[in-house]
Design a protein around this nucleic acid. Sequence first.
DNA 1: CGGCATGCTTACCAAAAGGTATGTACCCGA
DNA 2: TCGGGTACATACCTTTTGGTAAGCATGCCG
Lengths: 111, 111
Amino acid sequence: MRKRTYSCGLDAAVDIVGGKWKALILWALHHEPRRFGELKRSVPGISEKMLIQMLREMEAHGLVHREVYHQVPPKVEYSLTEFGQSLNTALIPLGVWGEENMRAIEAIPRD
Amino acid sequence: MRKRTYSCGLDAAVDIVGGKWKALILWALHHEPRRFGELKRSVPGISEKMLIQMLREMEAHGLVHREVYHQVPPKVEYSLTEFGQSLNTALIPLGVWGEENMRAIEAIPRD
DNA sequence: CGGCATGCTTACCAAAAGGTATGTACCCGA
DNA sequence: TCGGGTACATACCTTTTGGTAAGCATGCCG
């Protein structure tokens, strides 16, 4: 989130979904609400710091909902809001594209 | 481009389209091939350095085609490959989402 | 009492992304 | 000879992003 005006819708969407992790977290929440630890396990490679940071931003952006259960040990559940759902839906074709072309993408030489 | 394996298609797609500019450049090339200067004008805010850097990467990734015309003054045209077209198509819903929600996105307080 | 589990939080650091400014090479027309 | 237009390249710097490691609060279980 850095701009106040966008040149087009894609510009705005990229700004929201930007970074390496948010799309993956959204994806992981697609089917059901998840706890912190579950999310960490279902987004391989993410650090706790990044996960929290992204969750907090996404909460502030109205994409996810955070529900705290006052238990011991503590339990916190994250779920998609309507807004988050709609973004997730818009990401589906991109996910499909990625799956269809994963071989080609993996074959790209990285310097 | 940093990984060799992806946890899902979205992961791979985000890796390719990553950053602030590539999606916008792809978008700008959607309808017709464009020259360097035209692109610069149609992606507001981008610096020449970033534009070249992104174009080079996208060429290396097989998303765009670069055609040099040996003229004076020089002319270089960039166009989408089939691969680039397919990615662009997958980005359409995201662009639509961004347009529909642009007001909401702009209203998000930053920090 | 001590260890474990959960869900964070903090400090510190490295790498990548991005921006500004300037320079290059070419030829043309004034 | 000078400036302008095209398409870059390069150096330098700042900001953003991401990673590691450690610590904290809580209460249960043995």
